[in-house]
Amino acid sequence: MEFSQEIKREFDQIVARYPQGRQKSGLLPILHRVQAEYGWLSTEAMNAVAEYLNLNPIEVYEVATFYTMFHLEPVGKYVLEVCRTGPCCLVGAETLLQYLQRKLNIGIGETTPDGLFTLKTVECLASCGTGPVLQIGPEYLYHEHLTEQKLDQLIDRLRSES
């Protein structure tokens, strides 16, 4: 697997932020960039990142499996990540999460058959005052003060946009 020249230029810019020999520091930003490009992190992509950064591939796997934002399997076009932590639950997150499961007819961690939506839960998004909240990658925009009605509109809009 080969990254495009354009992406490699971005990698170069990322690595330039760190002192000589500390290119491993670029691993997280580079994995984010790769995921934004391909939607998820395949083994081939991680191996290519390892090669670019001059690391053993295992060093990349260790990191990618530690952080929850990295998808190690293909996901839907829109990854809906609903906050499930205490403060959001005080204002109805659990109910909404159930609603969303029914609406999309999938469980948590699953993807709709049309490949459009993957439903996930996340831990506290630092949006406790504006909960319930979900975010949608790869832009990771927040949708706050969620209600069933707002979810309906959001899902409809995303469906019509694609």
């Binding site: 930003p29 984010h32 929850t68 990295f70």
Partner: peptide
């Protein structure tokens, strides 16, 4: 510089 995390409290 800004450095992004990866999802880990």
């Amino acid at each position: 510089y800004v450095q992004p995390g990866g999802g880990a409290y």
